[in-house]
Structure formats: structure tokens, C-alpha cells
Computed example of a mutant assay.
Amino acid sequence: MLEAKLTQLHTLFQEMDRALIAYSGGIDSTLVAKVAYDVLGDRALAVTAISPSLLPEDLEDAKIQAATLGIPHHCVETHEMNNPQYTANPVNRCYFCKSELHDTLKPLAQEWGYPYVIDGVNADDLKDYRPGIQAAQERGARSPLAELSITKTEVRQLSQHLGLPWWDKPAQPCLSSRFPYGEEITIAKLQRVGRAEVYLRRLGLQNIRVRSEKDTARIELPPSEIKEFVLTTDLPTLVQAFQALGFLYVTLDLEGYQSGKLNRVLELASSSA
């Protein structure tokens, strides 16, 4: 089954001839970049958008991975923070983010002779509330993983099959996803939550989130790691570090990390309507 999906991906890119990849450094877009480069060579280009919602550490990872793949890599700045429709953080915030991204990438692709802009949306993404997908589709972007019904699990399996050392890399959506809908997003807030997550990563924790609500930081870990975290972490030092970043309160989510938790408020609102 995996070989069949990989063959389909190869065929899809062979039909494109040239492609520009919206490349974040996440596992999805990295797999797409890998296959595109295997098929197209230097006729594939990976482009990473730099903005305050991307950690410098994640940008560095993206550069290292692109260099490892061998694919040509270019960085551009996006300016979604200049859009009040984005910074107000409405429920469709991602629509404005992806609009900015693809309004930046599409002209570049046309100028540089790439007929296709490709993203890393997978089949599972289509099942969640992802308004950014609509923005990409409106601007003509293609999503090979979703088109071929390749799921997140299959993305990891294919990545491992192809020998990519980051096949089990945790998902790392943009930092704006750490804030509840309706709370204004600022560069200072993004930097604060970003530095908090880097602090936890340096403790050896990987699949984590720091959810920020006003002056409170809520740490989310996989449920299986919560007990060990409480027993082995120097909690007073951690709290002091978070407070030095500007948080007043530091809490631990006892339910643990679950993808899509931010959208529960939408489900609640829908059921109450």
C-alpha cells in the first residue's frame, strides 16, 4: 500500500514538471519536498515563510532538513501581523494567515516559472476545521497528500520508509494556535509563548504545547508523560523561568495534549446553537 502511494506521488510530480513547495519544515511539507526533489531535481523549490509566528529554532530545523534533502531552498517574509483581521484572532484566523502566505508565494511562482504551488495538507487535515485550506484552494494551490488520500500516519510511514530521520517529528503548528480565539495576537505574546516552549524542549520534552490565555500559561504534555514530569521536574525553577518571560501563572493541563483541542469551543458553540 505504501509503495503504491509513493508511486502515485511520483506520478503526480512527473506531470507537474516544475513545482514550488510551501515548506514549513514540518513532516508533511518535508515529505512533499523530498518526493518533489526526487522526481524533479532542481525544478523543485522549497520556500519557507518567515514571520513572528515561526520560532527561529524551527526555521533553523527547516534549513537543515532542506539541505539534507538537497532541494533548493528560499526564505521569504510574510506580513500577516499587519492584518488586523489576523491579529484579532477570530475563529477563521488561519484563513488570513494562509491568504497572506499564498498571496506571497503565487506571484513568486509565476515570476520564477513554477506553474504549481504545492502545500503539505494531508487527508486528515480535511477532517478538522482548517479555514486556511480554503484560502490555499482559492489561490490555486495543490495538496498532493490530500489528493491521494494520504493520512498523517501514512506520512510518517512513508517518511520512515524513505529514510528521513525526522519521520517521528512532533507536529508544530504556528505559534498563533496557542491562543484562545478572540484574544489579540501580538509579537510580544508570540515570542513569550515561543520561548516558553523552547524552555520545555530543552528539558527533553518534545510533543508539548504552552497554551497562553492572558497572563496564564497552560502546559500540555502527552498524558503518559504527566506523572513523570511532575515527579522529576524542578517545578519552582520552571515557574520562575515562565514568570521571567512575563507569565503570572503557570498551570498543567491534567487531560494532556490532544490535537484540535483549541476547536472544542467551536463544537460547544455549535451544539448550543
Score class of each variant (00 low, 15 high):
73 H>S: 11
37 Y>K: 03
69 L>S: 02
63 K>W: 01
15 E>Q: 15
104 T>N: 10
91 V>D: 14
48 T>L: 06
108 L>I: 14
104 T>K: 13
60 E>S: 11
108 L>G: 04
96 F>Y: 15
13 F>M: 03
55 L>E: 10
67 A>G: 15
110 Q>T: 14
40 L>P: 03
59 L>G: 08
20 L>G: 04
48 T>Q: 07
99 S>H: 14
72 P>C: 00
33 A>K: 05
55 L>Q: 12
91 V>S: 14
47 V>R: 04
125 D>R: 11
9 L>W: 03
74 H>F: 13
113 G>P: 11
73 H>A: 01
69 L>E: 02
79 H>W: 12
107 P>I: 05
101 L>T: 04
95 Y>M: 10
110 Q>I: 13
45 L>T: 01
12 L>K: 03
58 D>N: 14
48 T>M: 08
43 R>I: 01
110 Q>S: 14
121 V>D: 00
13 F>T: 02
65 Q>W: 09
124 D>E: 11
120 G>D: 06
40 L>Q: 03
111 E>I: 08
55 L>T: 06
115 P>H: 10
16 M>N: 05
78 T>L: 04
34 K>Q: 10
120 G>N: 05
37 Y>W: 14
50 I>Y: 07
104 T>A: 09
120 G>F: 11
119 D>C: 09
17 D>T: 13
78 T>V: 07
27 I>A: 10
51 S>C: 11
86 Y>V: 12
112 W>K: 14
104 T>D: 09
91 V>C: 06
71 I>P: 02
51 S>I: 10
66 A>T: 02
99 S>D: 11
91 V>F: 00
27 I>T: 13
123 A>W: 00
55 L>R: 15
94 C>V: 07
46 A>Q: 03
43 R>K: 15
12 L>M: 08
68 T>H: 14
98 K>M: 09
25 G>C: 06
94 C>G: 06
51 S>M: 08
96 F>N: 08
27 I>Y: 03
83 N>P: 05
15 E>S: 12
92 N>C: 12
121 V>H: 09
120 G>Q: 01
104 T>H: 10
55 L>W: 03
94 C>Q: 06
122 N>A: 10
75 C>D: 00
44 A>E: 01
72 P>R: 13
89 N>S: 01
103 D>K: 13
114 Y>H: 12
91 V>L: 11
41 G>P: 06
12 L>Y: 07
116 Y>H: 13
85 Q>R: 15
35 V>R: 04
71 I>H: 05
69 L>G: 02
101 L>S: 09
31 L>T: 03
75 C>W: 00
35 V>N: 04
